[in-house]
């Protein structure tokens, strides 16, 4: 249930459904278009005060509330996914780093038969005319 007054819409939701980090994330998105104030009475519910920076009618305020709740959901999903994928993300990064170390070792080995740029094995330094002849 929301209340609208003085270009402000007030609504609340349960903190059990959304983590506090998600509330911060959603609030941050709305900082450009509205003034936000958060309050918690008992630590279980969060009361949000959204005040339009421009004059907004009742419908627009209701719209703003809906958009905020959508963003809150979006933020919650992102946080939950990040938490769930933490291990696999760390695994992928560690594998990437390990393979990079492996490549370094290989390149250190190949340093023994180092090819100098003056040798020009790919023939890059050869002028076009010499390589393909004049037209």
């Amino acid at each position: 249930m929301s209340k609208r007054k003085d270009n402000t819409i007030r609504f609340s939701f349960n903190l059990r459904d959304y983590p506090l980090e998600a509330v911060y994330g959603a609030a941050y998105v709305f900082i450009d278009q509205a003034y936000l104030f958060l309050e918690s009475n008992d630590g279980k519910k969060i009361k949000v005060f959204l005040k339009g920076k421009k004059k907004l009618n009742s419908n627009k305020l209701k719209e703003l509330e809906g958009e905020f709740l959508n963003e809150l959901l979006n933020s919650t999903v992102r946080i939950k996914l990040a938490k769930n994928n933490k291990k696999i993300r760390e695994y992928v990064i560690s594998q990437a780093l390990l393979s990079a170390i492996g490549e370094e070792e290989v390149s250190q080995d190949s340093d023994k038969e180092e090819i100098k740029y003056e040798d020009d094995p790919l023939g890059i330094a050869v002028p076009w005319e010499e390589k393909y002849g004049k037209k």
């Binding site: 911060y24 609030a27 900082i31 003034y35 936000l36 104030f37 005040k51």
Partner: peptide, 12 residues
């Protein structure tokens, strides 16, 4: 007042 509250939120 409103701008200050927004700024606080942005700094969290």
């Amino acid at each position: 007042k409103d701008e200050f509250c927004n700024y606080v939120l942005s700094q969290i």
